[in-house]
């Protein structure tokens, strides 16, 4: 049985033919759309490396069936930088050395964008750490990650204020 899914990924619509419904969003992004920025760590919801924004909310793409999300809007790490300018969260990760090997980083950054958008943590380090606890970092770069998320929260709030003014 052949079926197709249409997904808008980083603002570009894609229609993908699936000959099998078992494909996860993670595998579709990596294997069919060659968007390998989203990482596969555990493939079981336990590490956060596969975090994407699905209709604006951060989720684990390894535990989402592609066919079930026909019509969805997806954002991945590849869609963040605009015309060579890094997203403020990307810039903050570099400024704060928020990684070592970098494997968890795309998931961390997508998760941080979700967290900042949810607006629950603000600049409270304890709330940021809790809000980012769905993303493991085997290199233990947590201190830099927390600092980067707090700085990005602040700079994005300032940018938003400037835009509103």
């Amino acid at each position: 049985m052949s079926m197709s899914v249409t997904l808008t990924v980083n603002r570009v619509p894609h229609t993908v033919q699936l000959d099998d419904p078992r494909v996860t969003l993670l595998d579709l992004l990596r294997e069919r759309l060659d968007l390998t920025g989203t990482k596969k760590g555990c493939d079981r919801g336990q590490c956060g490396a596969c975090t994407i924004l699905l209709d604006g909310r951060r989720v684990n793409s390894c535990l989402a069936l592609a066919i079930s999300h026909d019509g969805a809007e997806i954002q991945t790490i590849e869609g963040l930088a605009e015309g060579g300018a890094l997203h403020p969260v990307q810039a903050a990760f570099i400024a704060h050395d928020a990684f070592q090997c970098g494997f968890c980083t795309p998931g961390q950054i997508m998760s941080a964008i979700g967290l900042i958008d949810e607006g629950q943590a603000g600049e409270d380090p304890e709330r940021v750490r809790e809000g980012m606890s769905g993303n493991l970092c085997r290199c233990g770069a947590y201190r830099g990650i927390t600092e980067a998320v707090i700085e990005a929260t602040r700079s994005m709030a300032e940018d938003a204020q400037e835009k509103a003014a």
């Binding site: 956060g48 975090t51 699905l54 951060r58 989720v59 684990n60 998760s111 949810e118 809000g131 769905g134």
Partner: peptide, 9 residues
């Protein structure tokens, strides 16, 4: 429970 990502789903 779980993580923010899992709770969103």
């Amino acid at each position: 429970g779980a993580s923010a990502q899992l709770r969103n789903a």
